[in-house]
Design a protein around this nucleic acid. Structure first.
Lengths: 214, 214
DNA sequence: CAAATAAAATACCAATCGGTATAAAAAGAC
DNA sequence: GTCTTTTTATACCGATTGGTATTTTATTTG
């Protein structure tokens, strides 16, 4: 059996996964603990002290697993993004029609408190604004997330057209970009004002856009 | 006549305005020079060194005119916001119908390079994301900007309804929130991807929303 | 179990952070 | 033009920044 000496105040944080090396497990642990940090405080706003505080580890340990702060931030972003994508895929798999699949976006974002959404909200939105003028690596990551999202929506609309679910004259790309803009804008408004209803209203508009496809 | 000893490398930066005290002029100068800074690099990302570099002034001078960095940031935000609002009002005054007035939003944001838009893009969007979890004073400022914007759109729609320009069953608040979300989301997408066309597409959707009011 | 290896903790680095007390200089009042 | 007041520059503060070399401690291998 495995006996662990746990530092005071630090709970056993990683289920023993024998397939992973110690380093890999620690790395994952750091990502999990710092992901909400970066998503809330941003890249410039998150210090190494914040990271060591959140993980209970020391700088030596952080730098033993990551080259620098950038690498932690990027890993944290990827983790947060994966989290969102997992929620969306899982919800979509519950529906058959492409309209219902698209409606998952409206429903999930309408109140993402029902889901294990990343702390701090949409990671794309959060990193987009800060990174775009200051952090090229993160910016590219966020931009690729937008491209991926857009293509996913376009693919769903196209399949819906092929299945005679949607009208054939739909401009899939325009619709995708409009949907994404509405969703991200809606999140921003509610994040700022604290009024959940504002986001709800916007997501209802998204829903209308989707229903208008047929 | 007035003879100025100008420090090397610093051009004469303020037209002599006898109605303003030296302090007031310097204050305005600092705001003008730091407004793009905060709008591009964010609050946490803009250091006092950045401020002294951008202004050519020293810390003593900055702190002689502002209590702290926060105050500079808030003044910079107000300045950037005022800049946007001035552009919108000016463009709106050129049109008579409320539909045309509303369309100003779509047209101005479709390519704000044509206008003296703040460097770094929409100040509401930029401060919203960073400030919302970290800087309550700035957050409130940005939130109030959203409220003001929303109310302005609602008022325009209401006047349009009264003037029989728009249908009477329009939900003005829902429309306003949806428009704002689309605009901000569209800006975000283009800021991230660099594709001006993406913002254009979204603004065309905004235009459609406005045209659908009648 | 012991030896070899890998990972984490300690202690430190120079640079920069926001901020301030004080001195120098410029502006305004008379 | 002198004196007073306001404004700007200088020099410094402790704290914190991201990062690293080295020692200590765990983990893995034989």
């Amino acid at each position: 059996m495995f006996a662990y000496i746990i530092p005071i105040g630090i709970i056993l944080h990683q289920q023993f996964n024998s397939a992973m090396s110690k380093a890999a497990r620690t790395k994952e642990f750091i990502i999990e603990k710092t992901a909400p940090l970066f998503n809330v405080k941003g890249y410039a706003g998150t210090s190494l002290n914040d990271i060591t505080d959140a993980t209970g580890l020391t700088k030596g340990s952080i730098y033993g697993n990551f080259m620098n702060k950038d690498e932690v931030a990027i890993a944290a972003f990827d983790h947060n993004l994966q989290c969102v994508e997992d929620i969306i895929s899982q919800e979509m798999s519950k529906h058959k029609t492409f309209q219902d699949k698209l409606l998952v976006y409206a429903n999930v974002y309408e109140n993402f408190l029902k889901y294990p959404f990343p702390v701090g909200g949409c990671p794309i939105l959060n990193t987009a604004i800060e990174a775009d003028d200051t952090h090229p690596a993160l910016k590219e990551r966020a931009a690729n997330a937008i491209y991926g999202w857009k293509n996913k929506i376009i693919a769903l609309i196209q399949k819906g057209i092929d299945a005679k679910e949607f009208r054939a004259d739909i401009n899939a790309e325009h619709t995708a970009l409009t949907m994404i803009a509405m969703i991200e804008g809606g999140i921003m408004i509610t994040k700022l004002t604290g009024k959940l209803n504002y986001r709800k209203v916007v997501m209802q508009s998204v829903e209308r856009v989707i229903r208008d496809l047929s």
